[in-house]
Amino acid sequence: MDRQNGSAAASPLVSAIIPTRDRAGLVGRAVASALAQTHAPLEVIVVDDGSTDDTAAVLSAVADPRLTMVRLDPGRGVSAARNAGLAVARGAYVALLDSDDAWLPQKTARQLAFMRQRGLAISQTREIWMRGGKRVNPGKAQAKPDGFFFELALTRCLVSPSTVMFTREFHEEVGGFDESLPACEDYDLWLRALLRHPVGLLAEDLAVRHGGRPDQLSASHIGQDLYRIRSLLGLLGREDVSPWHASCIKKELRRKALCYAKGCLKRDKPEEAARVLDLAAAAAGPVGEAGETAP
Rank of each mutant, 00 (worst) to 15 (best):
D225E: 15
A183F: 04
E151L: 11
G176C: 06
S220A: 11
A102N: 00
A193H: 07
S220V: 06
E173N: 12
S99D: 15
L152R: 15
E173Q: 14
A102I: 04
L112C: 10
K144L: 15
S99E: 13
V164Y: 09
Q106N: 12
H197E: 07
D146N: 15
A95R: 06
W103G: 02
V174T: 09
R168V: 04
A113C: 05
H197V: 02
R135W: 01
A113N: 05
A109F: 09
I229M: 12
G212N: 08
I222H: 13
S160D: 05
E173P: 01
R118H: 15
S180H: 03
E185K: 00
D186V: 12
D225K: 14
E127Q: 11
E127C: 02
E173I: 10
F166I: 02
P182D: 10
E172C: 01
D215F: 10
G175L: 08
D98I: 12
L202V: 02
V94H: 15
S123C: 13
C157F: 04
R213D: 02
E172D: 15
R209P: 00
D98H: 05
L158M: 14
S231T: 15
G119D: 13
R192G: 06
D100Y: 07
G119F: 06
M165N: 08
G147T: 06
A183M: 01
